[in-house]
């Protein structure tokens, strides 16, 4: 392809994005668009799959049958979300095996929040309320992103996500109204999950290297800082309502901005966890790799069975 031809294709492509025409799998797209989308969608899929681990930790120890069926359904949803997203990502010409290999080798990332441990039952409440709450704020704008299969997957994900947040908030609310030990447990979970949750929106706008390009392609419709502020503004009153306090001494309502001012974020911690030094990074990846390797004989067996049936059908 000549340079001029490429330029024409690129111009037509940018025009489509500007006109809100969705890009579909077989359409021409710049290589950088494809790569960026593989990176983001796979990272998103991996986050859903790894995200099952901290919560799965509490399924067998849920305090009642009601809590247990809800948590089980939520974890199943995360598996489903991972699968919708892998399927969307594969339309960009990368195989499921390649995607899993990237996760297992650490060349693809997943959300750092899942590298924190779930120490008590209240952590299940805090995850649903805060982590899923932050995820929803990140995900809702993606229902209108430019890549068709990603946008459609996000519509399904968002529809299913709101029960996750409610079940988490309900757990926190109940604990906060319980005995003093229960309330303390809820407060402790909030203390530990608050900062990692607000870090989920990523580096500040000034530090974010992908923001400009991602805004142009509608992979992002609001900046990290805007989304973070939105999360804080909506979550602080919820904490007040159930009598828990957000662990930030600088948190203060700003009448002029009609928003909360908040204290400095410990970005060193964020980058430590991103780089693999969080409390559970190794454990999470080891668990995923073991699941993949221990499942190999099942996958092989199923293929052997399918091949045998094909032969029988043929004769």
């Amino acid at each position: 392809m000549s340079e001029a031809e490429l330029k024409t294709l690129e111009t037509a492509f940018e025009q489509k994005i500007q006109d809100d025409v969705r890009i579909e799998p077989k359409d021409w797209m710049p290589e950088k668009y494809r790569k960026t989308h593989i990176r983001q969608i796979s990272q998103h899929a991996h986050s859903e799959i790894v995200g099952m681990l901290p919560e799965g930790n509490w399924i067998t120890r849920a305090p009642s049958l009601r809590r247990k069926v809800a948590l089980l359904a939520k974890v199943q949803d995360e598996a489903g979300h991972g699968l919708y997203l892998y399927s969307a990502c594969e339309t960009l010409g990368i195989s499921r095996d390649e995607l899993l290999e990237q996760l297992h080798k650490g060349t693809a990332k997943y959300s750092s929040i899942f590298n924190y441990p779930t120490l008590t039952w209240a952590d299940i409440g805090a995850i649903g309320w805060l982590v899923d709450g932050a995820a929803i704020i990140n995900q809702v704008p993606l229902m209108n992103t430019s890549y068709g299969p990603y946008a459609r997957a996000m519509v399904r994900v968002c529809k299913e996500e709101s029960f996750h947040q409610r079940q988490g908030f309900e757990i926190m609310m109940k604990l906060a109204k319980g005995t003093s030990e229960q309330k303390e447990m809820a407060q402790d979970a909030l203390n530990r999950w608050w900062w990692p949750s607000i870090m989920m929106f990523g580096p500040t706008d000034a530090e974010s290297i992908h923001t400009a390009q991602s805004m142009k392609w509608k992979l992002k419709r609001k900046t990290n800082d805007e989304l973070r502020q939105q999360f804080i503004d909506q979550t602080v009153p919820q904490a007040d309502l159930i009598g828990l306090s957000v662990p930030d001494a600088d948190l203060k309502w700003n009448e002029e901005r009609q928003s909360y001012d908040f204290g400095p974020i410990d970005w060193d911690e964020f980058w430590q966890v991103v780089k693999g030094h969080g409390p559970c990074n190794k454990q999470r990846i080891n668990t995923r790799v073991a699941a993949y390797e221990n499942g190999k004989w099942v996958r092989d067996g199923a293929m052997a069975h399918a091949a045998k049936k094909e032969v029988r059908k043929a004769v």
Binding site: Y84, S87, R156, R299, A302, A306
Partner: peptide
């Protein structure tokens, strides 16, 4: 509505 992987 999407795709899945399966042996048969």
């Amino acid at each position: 509505c999407g795709s899945i992987h399966a042996a048969d």
